[in-house]
Structures are given as C-alpha cells and as structure tokens.
Design a protein around this nucleic acid. Structure first.
Ligand code: NAD
Ligand code: NAD
Lengths: 208, 208
DNA sequence: CTAACACTGTTAATTATTTCACAATTTTCT
DNA sequence: AGAAAATTGTGAAATAATTAACAGTGTTAG
C-alpha cells in the first residue's frame, strides 16, 4: 500500500470506534454518508479515506461494518500488539492510565515510571510503577515500544532523551515542552494550553 | 489584519510560552532561528508566522521578546479575559482544573458542572462544582464563554446541545464523540485514543 | 572603505489535504 | 423493460500549509 496521510490515519481510528458502536447496536452495513454524519465530515472524505486503504464497499449497500473494522485493525494495529508505558504518574498520568486500562486490546499499558519514592513499587490501576532509573532495563525486558510522557515540564527533555536511548519507538508527549527525536522514533505532541488558547482566540474573533 | 491560519495560532500560543521562559532567564532579544530551535521547526516558519501578525524585528538583532509576548497577547487574549467552565469533574476534569488553575491570567476557570450529588456544591482546586441543571443559568450569570467537556462518552451530545443552548461561544471537547455546533460556536476536539493509535501505526510502519 | 556576513521579510514554488464533479452501476419504481 | 434514484470510486480542481529562494540591509572584519 502506498502512503497514507496522517489525517487519514487519525480519521480511521475514529471511524473504527464509531463502527464498533454501530456494530454493538446490531447494524451490519453503513453508507459513507452515515459515517460522515457521525463524524461531522463529508461523505467524499470518508470514501476517499477508504479508497486510500483499498476498501471497497458494495454499490447501494454501503460498507460491511465488520469487515471494515477488521481492515482498519490490520492497518493500525500490529498483529501481536504493542506495549505502552506511562512516564510520570501524576494527575494526568493517573487519569490516562485509568482511562486506557483494557481499552484497546492491541495496546497494553504494561508499566509506569516515576521518580517519587512514594509511588515506586505501587500499582496504579493495576500497573506497576517502576523507578525511572530502571526505565532502560524495563523497556528492553518488556519490549515496550510506545511511551506516554506526563512528567514535569522541566524534566521533559532529559526524560525524552532517556527514552530514546532506551530504544523506544514512539512517544506521545503531553508536556508543553517540544522534544527532539531521531528519525526512527515517531513523535506526537499534544499541548492542551494551545488548544484552549486557540478556542479563546476564535471565540474572540467570532464575537468581534 | 487578514486571516490567520489555525496552525499559526497554535504556534503563536507555543511561541509565547517559549518566550516567557526565555524572558525569565534574562534574555531580551531572540532570533528566528533560536525560536525555531526550541520549537523544532524551521526559522522561515517562525518568520512567516510573525509576518502574518505584522510583527517586525530588527535586522541582525532579532525580535524583542517583551514586545512580541505582548503582541501575541493582544492577538490571542481578549482584553478583559474570558471565563471558562469544566463540564464533568471526573478523573480528567480534575486533572485539568488543577493544572490550569492560575496558569493563564486571561483564562479563568470559574465553574465546574457535574451531575453527581457527591460532587455538587464541593470545591475542586478552589472552583465550585454546580449541578449540571444550573448550567444555563450560571453560564449566563457569570458570562462564561468557553467550556471544556470531560463528561462520559454517552452524555456528550446532549451536554453539548445544552451548552450551545446556554449561549456558550467555544467548546473544547475531550470526549471521543464528535459533536455538532452552529457556526457561531467555535469547536475544538481532541481525541487521545486517536493520538495513541496514530503513534502505534507509525511505529509499526517504521519497524516494517 | 569595502567585502563578507548574518539576519529579516516576502514572493514564488511545492506539497498536503479537501472538495468538486461526474461516470459507473445497482436498485426501485412504473 | 425503461426511467429515476441512490450510491460508490476517482480524476481534476481548489484550498491550505510549508518550504525555497532571494532581495534588502545593517554589522563586522580586514
Ligand atoms: N494535569 C493536566 O491536566 C495537564 C494538562 C496538560 C498538560 N499537562 C502536562 O503534563 C505534565 C504532567 O502534569 P501533571 O499535572 O500530571 O503533573 P504532576 O506534577 O501531577 O505529575 C508529574 C509526575 O512526574 C513525576 N516526576 C517528577 N520528576 C520525574 C522524573 N525525573 N522522572 C519521572 N517522573 C518524574 C512526579 O513524581 C509526578 O508523579 C506536565 O508537563 C503538564 O504540563 C498536564
Ligand atoms: N481520563 C482520561 O485520561 C481521558 C482521556 C481521554 C479522554 N477521556 C474522555 O474524557 C471523558 C471523561 O473521562 P474521565 O476519565 O474523566 O471519566 P469520569 O467518569 O472520571 O468522569 C466523568 C464525570 O462526568 C460526570 N457526569 C456524568 N454524567 C453527567 C452529566 N449528565 N452531566 C454532567 N456531568 C456528568 C461524572 O459524575 C464524572 O464526574 C470521557 O469522555 C473520556 O472518554 C478521558
């Protein structure tokens, strides 16, 4: 398969969850305009995304939900699943771990890391918290490929470097400090303050 | 001023925080390539963004940090500030309220809303939690313009509708259920599961 | 004093993403 | 059966965002 745009991957993740919901309601086929309605996008966009992953529906019947879910799974998930760690088990880290626990079968959170002695050795939502200094060892032993970073701002860069040194393959960074990784590590950053300020700006704009 | 792209607004929010940090370290001027280095983008992008907001630096001196911070403030913030509410004070809502408390002077979190009797009337990080049924009244009385939604998935749509009816101007939706708002309400959605699945996909891609 | 350098600001080119427009085909209706 | 309606798949056009290229201009070094 050729190149799939980032935006398409994001939408596929969302389609899958919408489809799972439809499936649980007993639906078995769905039209592009129905998916579009749920996601508040256009039907063409849906069709184009599915075209890009090579899925083809049946004319006038739409897409087979079960099949499409499986195909999206083949694209996004890796067969054996991937292991995820949370680094920094503070307020945000704990919320995430609780939320994600058993949410996606192919993405298991298998470890937390922190530097606070009061947290090390304890379990959070069933996940053991290790000392940050053991991170390289644990990432290798447990074959962890993805890290979610929720550490204090001023620790961000050093910890990202440590993750890279430990052989991590992908990082989702929730701190507001941009990090730098080599080409063979995939990086996704989300900055909540930016989101809120963006809303604030456009709200002002609309009012004006 | 003409139209500013969404992406530029996002970067401006980030520049401002980077600049505040530099300022606190005693720096008073900065070059486009220095900002670029911090943000891991190109210097051209920085210059273009600043061009779009009409800021002009001095040749061979760079940009005056203090001035630039103020200009970005004039663009993003509204003069009198805006009031923000958190809807759904569960794990994520509590983490956010704690995090944002006093973080941005022009964006004050002034209310939380929930339906759980055990939470109503209590304070969270100093912010009072009201009954969701009082939301329309409170939004109007306190002149709240922005809402952050962290409610259970299956309540998302009804609560978004209630927010719109209450006259909200902007919504930041953290639930995975897409919502629909009229044109005069600005909507920003962030879906954490999508982010993680995106990382998972590209990690697999790199390995393959 | 002049040349080389180091920056900014901007136009033009490129790349990425979305939307338009419509051919093709199946189903439904008469 | 033939016409109308519904729906997919896709090339081409439009729009949005990034990057390249470079002119202009102080600054520094010789
Ligand atoms: N709380 C939120 O809602 C929120 C929202 C947006 C962004 N963030 C960002 O997420 C990050 C964490 O925020 P938080 O509110 O959870 O903070 P927090 O202080 O509650 O949690 C930070 C955790 O990191 C641990 N830690 C400190 N030093 C460490 C080290 N060297 N190695 C490993 N762990 C270490 C701390 O012990 C603590 O458990 C921050 O960068 C913050 O800016 C948080
Ligand atoms: N926890 C996370 O890290 C995380 C991450 C990503 C997305 N989310 C999303 O954020 C949302 C909240 O997640 P959470 O983990 O905080 O859940 P939670 O169950 O801890 O919190 C939900 C809160 O909403 C309240 N609530 C229920 N019905 C309500 C109503 N009708 N009106 C107002 N409030 C009501 C509940 O009392 C509770 O306090 C969910 O949509 C979840 O998918 C959470």
């Amino acid at each position: 398969m050729k190149h799939i745009p980032h935006k398409t991957i994001e939408r596929l993740s969302q389609y899958r969850r919408a489809l799972l919901l439809c499936l649980s309601k007993g639906k078995d086929h769905i039209f592009s305009h129905e998916i579009a309605k749920i996601q508040h996008i256009t039907p063409v966009q849906v069709r184009r995304d599915l075209m890009l992953i090579g899925y083809t529906g049946t004319l006038r019947k739409g897409y087979k939900i079960q099949e499409l879910i499986e195909l999206i799974g083949e694209i996004i998930d890796s067969k054996e699943g991937q292991k995820v760690a949370i680094v920094g088990i503070g307020n945000l880290g704990r919320a995430i771990i609780k939320y994600f626990k058993n949410k996606r079968p192919k993405l298991a959170i298998v470890a937390a890391f922190d530097s606070d002695p009061k947290k090390i050795g304890k379990k959070f939502s069933g996940v053991t918290c290790y000392n940050i200094s053991d991170m390289p060892k644990e990432i290798k032993n447990q074959n962890i490929t993805i890290a979610i970073m929720t550490v204090p701002d001023d620790r961000t860069i050093e910890i990202a470097d440590l993750l890279v040194k430990s052989g991590i393959k992908g990082i989702l960074n929730f701190t507001p400090r941009p990090i730098n990784v080599p080409d063979n590590v995939f990086l996704e950053e989300y900055d909540m303050t930016t989101s809120i300020e963006k809303v604030a700006f456009y709200v002002k704009d609309v009012q004006a």
